[in-house]
Design a protein around this nucleic acid. Structure first.
Length: 900
RNA sequence: GCGCGAUUAGCUCAGUGGUAGAGCACAUGCUUCACACGCAUGGGGUCACUGGUUCGAACCCAGUAUCGCGCACCA
């Protein structure tokens, strides 16, 4: 009836087969017309031209686990996939190719032709990552795949712009922004990464105009900007310089007279306490400039080279070369006093990885909407952050929020939907400021282009990628879908994009939907390598997930990764962990194979309505009840762990139950039922219990290892009428429902005693190097009458030749003995044993028991303990004391028996 | 500078006040008829440090150290 199962599990074919079947059967479809309760997630859209890395694997495995689990809990699940156009990243890639293959820039091609290239690139490379996510088994509703540059999505983005422009939240102005000299665009503050740099502090002196013998000593890290200096500043309270206020110094080159001014911002302790003020090239200097009404001289070109204002010899020179040359020139002029090594923090462009340049330019800004509502939502846990500490980071950012620079001087992206009337275009484009108040006949701000485009000029800039991403939770959905699935249930993402994305989505959700965009946000850990370094391409320490899938299977990768992913801290990645995932898949595979080898003719509990567990209670062994109780415990422990998003704990629970409880103990202790001569009912009952356990276990494991569980579900014959495991419903009731918990507890305790006894006997055998099976017999002095029923199991588990009941047994000096939960056990050996070794072994155990007894006794003798501790703790200690006393007595007796 | 984490076995990590745990690695022994991607057994820890609270602290509090992250920066 069922297929023959191969010895080693081979994931490759199985995984592909099931993914195709799931797609064919529309098993991932989220139905907006369903009556079931909704559960939804939107994928954090990866870059359209990106490739899968381990971070994606972790993130999307978690989402898949949540989605699959919710489906099996009877919810209607929508997991919505898609990609982000990733403005700078994508444009940079295409520009690089253009430069390398054709030695051209985007400007050589022109805007339209260049955009065609990007679209072609997107067609060619786009969606690779989506294919990779499918290989991982992600159960997204692939029929709903979205892209942030889809036509209707773009319209939403433009409408959003228009909405905020009209409300006055969007304005245009000349501001100091972060400028990337490589990408040639403004960046938001969030796209700037501060990095410590080893640089130099140059001490130079400016000559006083009023007294050519007096100099003012200034420290700077950026001599290349001195051509843009329009003042030097000191702290107004700095006694050293008070007499110089109001005087002027010579800027060495281009030579000019600049004032000495006072400003609170200057720290007298730093350097010489004198700051050269370059309003065009430093944010703080710019503010000083504004406060003191200073002239602004921009000495840089957009690409980071110097311009004509820097002087002829510097014109066209790169900024870093200019730094050296300027220092040399100062030195030649006798104005450079010394150089000091100095470590400072420099802002780098996230994408291009070059120092950004503070630059004054015309940009569009957005005053963030819904800040109070968004702050409160997280503070009051209406939106729950997990781990919770990220809520603090969020709150802190929201408190200090600055207007968002949303314009980018790129071509790939959503173009700003602002048109200027042709005749007035130049004037309007250069206007110092522009906002809704300026809207008139000469300005067209709309998601529809003007009807007479020939009379209009569109704004050149595009919008920040995140200005489209922040609409993702609802712009990806049509009305009926929103009605069913918005707000989404969970968001799974990295803490590194709390500001970029999470915070902004919350604001957009309240602004446009009037509701939060998601209920819970789970922040994943960052994956590091074994040495704790961040995974990066340049270090080459980032394993390709596809290689890992080839080697260990998608299920192995998922399971291995999830088991090492703690909540809240970083993951140290180790391929060995993934190997364990694969090994676990193989273990599961072989356990099922073992079950299949016992035949399928037995009736299964799940098929026959009259064959329920309470009905056959008297046929169930203590091991049957024990494993079923543990299965039910697994179920409820999993629920608890899931509730707090402790996925690694879920993985651990699933692993431990199956490998240790089920395979090592239950299957081993019931092997006798499948041997020749075993009672047919025993055999049948055992098979039935195995089936109950395996069936439910496959359901519980499925979210972690979807492919292999689905395969086994079918192979084991659980797929009634071809029902998919992933579409099966997890029964709400425990398997032992209707059975007296007292009976179960007693059975479990007895099974535990048998297992503990087994461990001790195996230990004794190992001590005497008796690993070869069945060469030894045991004699038990049973303490309870139920033990006789379990002797055969004990024999099976310990691999003993036989186990006799030994009331009349008289141990000789050559008989090692043990105290076990079921009574004293002797291991008579033929021939002499090493009495010294045995004595040593016993002495060791006695010492241990004594130590423990002392500890417990000491505690119980302390009246304060007895007085203060909880009753149960005292009772626990008392029984422990008794245990140790008995144990000690027996051990000493054994030692005595050994004689001398 | 401010804030947030972390510090437990060789490694990766569990452990919310009452006997220090798991997996891997290591050692030893196993061609036990599901699995060597396996089975069994074992060795291995001053729970970073110093104080405090408590009858009792890996756990709570304060401080120190080291590492990591975030924010803000002194040119």
């Amino acid at each position: 009836m069922s297929d023959e199962i191969p010895k080693a599990y081979d994931p490759t074919a199985v995984e592909e087969k099931w993914f195709d079947r799931w797609i064919d059967r529309h098993a991932f479809h989220g139905d907006e017309n369903s009556d079931k309760p909704a559960y939804s997630i939107v994928i954090p859209p990866p870059n359209v031209t990106g490739v899968l890395h381990l971070g994606h694997v972790l993130n999307n495995t978690i989402q898949d686990i949540l989605a699959r689990r919710s489906r099996m809990q009877g919810k209607e699940v929508l997991w919505l996939p898609g990609c982000d156009h990733a403005g700078i990243a994508t444009q940079t890639k295409v520009e690089r190719e253009l430069r390398e293959k054709e030695q051209k820039t985007r400007r050589d091609l022109g805007r339209d032709a260049f955009l065609e290239r990007v679209w072609a690139w997107k067609e060619k490379h786009g969606g690779i990552i989506m294919k990779q996510l499918k290989k991982l088994g992600c159960s997204c509703d692939w029929s709903r795949e979205r892209f942030t540059m889809d036509e209707d999505y773009s319209r939403e983005v433009q409408k959003t712009f228009v909405h905020f422009f009209q409300s006055g939240a969007i304005y245009r102005g000349k501001r100091m922004v972060n400028w990337c000299p490589v990408s040639l665009t403004a960046l938001s503050d969030e796209e700037v990464i501060m990095k410590p740099q080893n640089s130099k502090l140059y001490y130079m002196q400016y000559q006083l105009v009023e007294d050519e013998n007096e100099y003012l000593e200034i420290a700077t890290t950026r001599p290349e900007t001195l051509m843009g200096d329009t003042a030097v500043a000191v702290n107004p309270n700095d006694e050293r310089y008070k007499h110089l206020l109001g005087k002027t110094v010579w800027r060495p080159f281009p030579k000019a007279e600049i004032p000495i001014i006072a400003d609170e911002h200057i720290d007298p302790e730093f350097g010489t306490g004198v700051l050269k003020v370059t309003p065009a090239h430093d944010k703080a200097d710019f503010e000083i400039g504004v406060r003191n009404n200073l002239e602004i001289i921009d000495v840089f070109n957009p690409d980071g080279t110097l311009n004509m204002h820097a002087g002829e010899e510097f014109e066209g020179m790169d900024r870093f070369k200019a730094r050296k040359v300027a220092a040399e020139k100062l030195d030649e002029m006798g104005l450079l006093l010394r150089e000091e090594d100095y470590q400072n923090n420099v802002g780098f462009s996230e994408r291009a990885d070059v120092p950004i340049e503070p630059r004054i330019s015309m940009q569009w800004f957005l005053k963030y909407p819904q800040v109070p509502a968004s702050t409160d939502a997280v503070a009051h846990r209406d939106i729950k952050f997990v781990p919770e500490r990220w809520a603090k980071t969020y709150a802190h950012w929201m408190e200090n929020i600055q207007d968002w620079c949303i314009s980018r001087q790129l071509w790939w992206g959503h173009r700003i939907p602002v048109w200027y009337r042709k005749e007035k275009a130049e004037a309007l484009q250069n206007a110092e400021s522009l906002d809704a108040g300026d809207a008139g006949d000469d300005l067209h701000v709309s998601h529809e282009p003007p009807v007479d485009p020939e009379n209009w000029v569109q704004d050149d800039d595009v919008l920040d990628t995140w200005f489209s991403s922040w609409l993702w939770p609802f712009a990806t959905m049509d009305e009926p879908t929103r009605k069913k699935f918005y707000p989404t249930s969970d968001l799974v993402t990295g803490p590194d994009i709390i500001f970029f994305w999470v915070a902004r989505m919350i604001m957009a959700g309240y602004e446009f939907m009037g509701k939060k965009p998601f209920g819970n946000v789970f922040f994943t850990s960052i994956i590091r390598d074994k040495k704790g370094r961040k995974m990066s391409k340049s270090l080459g320490n980032s394993p390709d997930p596809l290689d890992l899938i080839d080697k260990f299977g998608a299920d192995g990768l998922r399971f291995g990764l999830m088991r090492i992913a703690p909540v809240g801290s970083d993951i140290r990645f180790d391929e060995q962990q993934i190997e364990e995932g694969r090994n676990f898949a193989n273990k599961l595979w072989n356990a099922c194979r073992y079950r299949q080898m016992q035949g399928t003719e037995s009736r299964s509990l799940r098929r026959d309505p009259d064959f329920s567990l309470p009905e056959i209670l008297d046929q169930l062994s203590i091991y049957d009840l024990d494993i079923l109780a543990k299965l039910d415990a697994l179920r409820s422990n999993l629920d608890k762990a899931y509730d707090s998003y402790r996925f690694s704990e879920c993985g651990q629970l699933l692993y431990e139950f199956f490998w240790s409880q089920f395979c090592d103990w239950y299957l081993e202790s019931t092997k006798g039922h499948f041997r020749e001569g075993a009672a047919p009912t025993r055999r049948e009952t055992t098979l039935a219990v195995v089936d109950v356990v395996v069936e439910r276990y496959l359901q519980l494991l499925h979210p972690f290892m979807p492919h292999i569980t689905e395969e086994l579900w079918e192979k084991m014959g659980f797929a009634d009428h071809g029902e998919l495991l992933m579409r099966s419903e997890l029964p709400a009731n425990p398997t032992l429902e209707g059975i007296d918990p007292g009976v179960v507890a007693k059975a479990s305790a007895r099974a535990g005693d048998v297992f503990e006894t087994t461990t001790r006997l195996r230990y004794l055998k190992a001590e005497y190097n008796l690993a070869a099976s069945k060469e030894v017999g045991f004699v038990v002095e049973p303490e309870n009458d139920w033990i006789s029923d379990e002797v055969s199991t004990l024999q099976l588990l310990t691999g003993a030749k036989d186990i006799q009941s030994g009331e009349e047994f008289l141990p000789t000096a050559q008989t090692p003995s043990l105290l076990t939960p079921v009574g004293k056990v002797h291991m008579p050996l033929e021939g002499l044993i090493d009495i010294d070794a045995e004595r040593q072994r016993l002495a060791k155990e006695i010492a241990k028991a004594q130590k423990e007894l002392e500890k417990v006794s000491k505690r119980l003798n302390d009246p304060k303990f007895v007085e203060n501790a909880k009753e149960e703790v005292v009772a626990q200690n008392k029984s422990r004391r008794e245990e140790h006393r008995t144990r000690l007595a027996s051990l000493e007796e054994m030692l005595k028996t050994l004689g001398n």
